[in-house]
Design a protein around this nucleic acid. Structure first.
Lengths: 367, 367
DNA sequence: TTGAAAGCGCTAACAC
DNA sequence: GTGTTAGCGCTTTCAA
């Protein structure tokens, strides 16, 4: 009832629906639906009338009704630790770009590194029936979490969606996930080799949460490189803890004050490296003259440090884009049993200015 | 039909719905709904049976059906220029936090600074019936864009949602928007005063897209401060263009090479300041000894530059949080006519290390 | 405390 | 080309 007003500028009290448009255009709502979706032939004349009505009424389709009727949501979900950490925000940017390019909206949520929260968020995305849910970043070796994750992967597969692990290890062969990853161990091995080739022997490994898959792999690559040359990795030269700048700064400071006699630092990521660099600079330690420094990830800021950081390039934004592409490419077998689809993106050493051969005598606090 | 399997581990071919749960639990779907929402009394026994069934079947409610039936989406939308720019990502973080804290999911999209795209995105959010749509960052003085924006504000108000302009000027008194802003002009005036108080006269204004409201206001504050002291602002000392680091670096470089005889630089934001700092450092210009430098926004990175940047602090994350709070607090009058709700967050000068009195003779390229 | 039934706004056969 | 008519999966009166 009620449609004899033309007060186009006043907010309607009753949300305008498709049948309002239909009525005004003098057609059925099916026709309105057809001109909206443009997937069925509609006479140009009718099309015009309908569009006119849509315009007049200021109609905007209800995405939920649409999703319900067509079971197509045109959305993807992404879960990250922290939205301001460049590692994550570049990946989110890639995801948003690709989602947007394929007409999808992007639901993003931050887990703050909390496993339970993460699972809860996945469940909310399942509720949303997103075309994909992308979980980003390393995880902990926790059987219970893996199992719960695997369950979600199955649920998602069951509703025709996909769980993609972006920069996170598999949660089991059985789980129907897709993976977009890169070789952390290999990259770490490569930078370490680089340091060793320059003549470094006493290298400090700094940063990365203990037990986080990403940390674990990077540390493993570091160790393997050292050991393959017969060099020791004394416990006092391995300091883990976190992936942030603050950690790098604080820990590097303490270590420096303890006269470690190191000639190089392998920071677990660029943020840690930036923090460490600060600590060194503040103490008059010159990089790379006194101590060499390498990072990991190659976030754009790294080439803006002084000196520019030598690091391992990880194509963050691409990973985001690939994650949604992979998820949307439906190639799994009929029973959805077989976990298919895995992309390993390339990584490479980026040599800039923070590495040089070691000094004849290691830097020490006093002098 | 069909429910005599217990293969809990295999993805169901038919999405499990509420009536599946109801059937399994031997109750009506209304009851299932009631235990799910916990807003009606349900016998503990029934509750248990239902929960058991939910567990067994791995049921996850369909958010779209829910939204359609209850017209409550529990979501907010946010539109920013760029997800990796700290200015935006901190605001997004604030929005996500508050949304999450109130049980809402966050739909984020990037406009890439394109006005039409931005409008299109707002329309998509309207389709989603989000509880609020938050548009972040300066806008251009474009009557057509303003009008379209105002229309969207009305549409949103009409469906019980809210358009909030975060860090963007009003689109007209008539439009039912809410605003979370800060005083750009005043902040710019204040930093400029600070520079002047140190003795600077020839100050370069650097960066900010021409015509963007934020830029316009900052430049206006700069001008007003200079003029209030009777100082000139010669055109060759105003270089606008963009808000990025690259712009700051490139432009500062060129200017320096042209022997501008300046003693200080007012960068339109911290990113521009960081770029300018690089350019100066690369040319052996010492900050603040040779040239002083100030920025705007106080993104966390600014206190990690060398020297630490003197800048204007803007509570980015708070603004994000306040945006959703304000939107969710329904306080408008019955007819939704009156645009209500505006928060102006406080801003303050943060003195760090990048400002000093000018040298007796300005720095010049030769020396 | 629980069930029946009427929608929510749209899509997708199926007819004409 | 266009209209009719079932649903999509849930919430919410209204009765019982």
């Amino acid at each position: 009832m009620t449609t004899q007003d033309d007060r186009a500028t006043v907010g309607a009290m009753h949300t305008v629906t498709m049948s309002d448009v239909a009525e005004r255009a003098g057609v059925s709502s099916a026709t309105v639906s057809r001109v909206l979706n443009g997937n069925y032939p509609v006479a140009q004349a009718t099309r015009d009338v309908v569009n006119r009505a849509i315009e007049d009424l200021g109609y905007t389709a209800n995405a939920h009704a649409r999703a319900l009727a067509s079971s197509a949501t045109h959305s993807v979900g992404i879960i990250v630790n922290d939205l301001v950490d460049p590692f994550f925000s570049y990946i989110v940017r890639g995801v948003e770009q690709e989602a947007s390019a394929t007409g999808r909206l992007c639901i993003v949520a931050a887990s703050q590194g909390d496993v339970d929260r993460e699972i809860g968020l996945i469940d909310r995305m399942i509720s949303q029936r997103t075309d994909a849910v992308i979980v980003v970043g390393g995880g902990y070796e926790d059987p219970r979490a893996r199992r719960r994750m695997a369950e979600r992967a199955r649920t998602l597969a069951g509703i025709g969606s996909t769980l993609v692990l972006c920069g996170r290890p598999s949660v089991g062969e059985q789980a129907p996930t897709k993976i977009v990853g890169y070789d952390n161990e290999g990259g770490a091995f490569a930078v370490t080799q680089h340091l060793i080739a320059q003549g470094h022997r006493r290298i400090l490994y700094l940063g990365g949460p203990i037990g986080l898959s990403t940390s674990v792999a990077r540390l493993a690559g570091f160790r393997r490189a050292m050991q393959s040359h017969g060099y020791d990795v004394p416990p006092e030269l391995v300091h883990q803890g976190a992936f942030g700048r603050r950690f790098g700064h604080a820990t590097m400071g303490e270590i420096l004050d303890g006269n470690p006699e190191i000639t190089a630092v392998f920071a677990a990521n660029d943020l840690v490296a930036a923090g460490a660099l600060d600590a060194m600079t503040a103490r008059g330690v010159r990089v790379p003259e006194d101590i060499s420094l390498v990072g990991y990830d190659d976030i754009p800021q790294s080439s803006e440090l002084t000196p520019k950081l030598t690091t391992v390039h990880v194509p963050l934004e691409d990973m985001g884009r690939e994650s949604v592409r992979l998820a949307l490419s439906r190639t799994d077998d009929a029973f959805g049993r077989h976990a298919d689809g895995e992309i390993i993106v390339g990584t490479r050493l980026v040599e800039r200015e923070s590495v040089a051969p070691p000094r004849a005598t290691p830097w020490t606090p006093g002098r």
